[in-house]
């Protein structure tokens, strides 16, 4: 972090390019304090984070049963398994134009884009988690009487948890990216200013310091959610199973 700041400042001093293309760190900092003074700083972040998390939660609620169905029911897998993996490789920014046309410029359109980005990741993570469950656990479960839904609940889901969590982590990354794409492309006064709109506003106002601020915040929020929520969760699960070597 410090290294990035030093290199940045050195580049500014060396005047490698015009200051409107590369603002000084202090100019970006002024942008932060200005936004803070106006009380909009937290608003920018909250607008996007609340959308991102709510969208992610919806993706979780839809992706989990979907993943289970694909993993456990043969004809469902044959029918929609390939579509899910295909969707995963489609950049979700591609969904922004149709979502705008279908739903208009509003929050539902944002959520639709998030869902289309995150649901396939979450479902696919769960499918591969289930596929990697050692058959021995399933056989042991069956001899204990855990069959059907009880087998799914007591054996399959906990056994697939590490793969599922990896899918959730990726699902969050996809939610966040999709949301930013949607916010940048589809800005409207009714939508409030999130980080994506901030970035777009910076571009239209020709304010590189605002652009930089937006990019930094997008990066920081994405990483922070991962570090605060997903990494501890993953470490806990792995450690309790003796899968994490701690020094």
């Amino acid at each position: 972090m410090a290294l990035v700041l030093v290199v940045w400042q050195v580049l500014v001093w060396a005047k490698v390019t015009d200051s409107y293309k590369l603002p000084a760190p202090s100019a970006v900092w002024d942008e932060v304090s200005e936004a803070w003074r106006q009380g909009t700083f937290l608003e920018y972040i909250w607008t996007s984070v609340s959308r991102g998390l709510l969208g992610f939660l919806m993706a979780l609620v839809i992706g989990t049963p979907l993943g289970l169905l694909v993993a456990r029911v043969k004809f469902v897998r044959a029918a929609i398994g390939p579509i899910l993996s295909g969707l995963q490789s489609l950049p979700s920014v591609a969904w922004v134009p149709p979502a705008v046309l279908w739903l208009g410029l509003n929050d539902s359109m944002m959520y639709a884009v998030i869902l289309l980005g995150a649901v396939p990741s979450i479902a696919n993570g769960l499918v591969s988690g289930v596929d990697q469950v050692p058959p021995l656990y399933l056989r042991a479960g069956r001899t204990l009487g855990a069959t059907g839904l009880r087998g799914t609940w007591h054996i399959v889901i906990p056994a697939a948890l590490p793969g599922y969590l990896a899918g959730l982590k990726q699902g969050w990354a996809f939610s966040w990216r999709s949301l930013m794409a949607a916010e940048i492309i589809a800005s409207s006064p009714d939508l409030g200013i999130g980080l994506g709109q901030l970035l777009e506003n910076g571009r239209t106002a020709n304010s590189m310091s605002m652009v930089f601020l937006a990019i930094l915040l997008i990066l920081i929020v994405g990483i922070a959610i991962d570090l605060l929520i997903f990494s501890p969760l993953e470490r806990r699960v792995l450690r309790s199973r003796g899968l994490l070597v701690t020094h």
């Binding site: 056989r139 042991a140 204990l144 007591h154 906990p158 199973r241 003796g242």
Partner: peptide, 24 residues
């Protein structure tokens, strides 16, 4: 049935493995 591999569930403690059998 008892297997050559212990087949205990790693997401549960020893006690909870036994309790799962009782519960089922």
């Amino acid at each position: 049935l008892m297997f050559q591999e212990h087949a205990l569930f790693p997401w549960l403690t020893a006690g909870k493995n036994i309790e799962l059998a009782l519960k089922l």
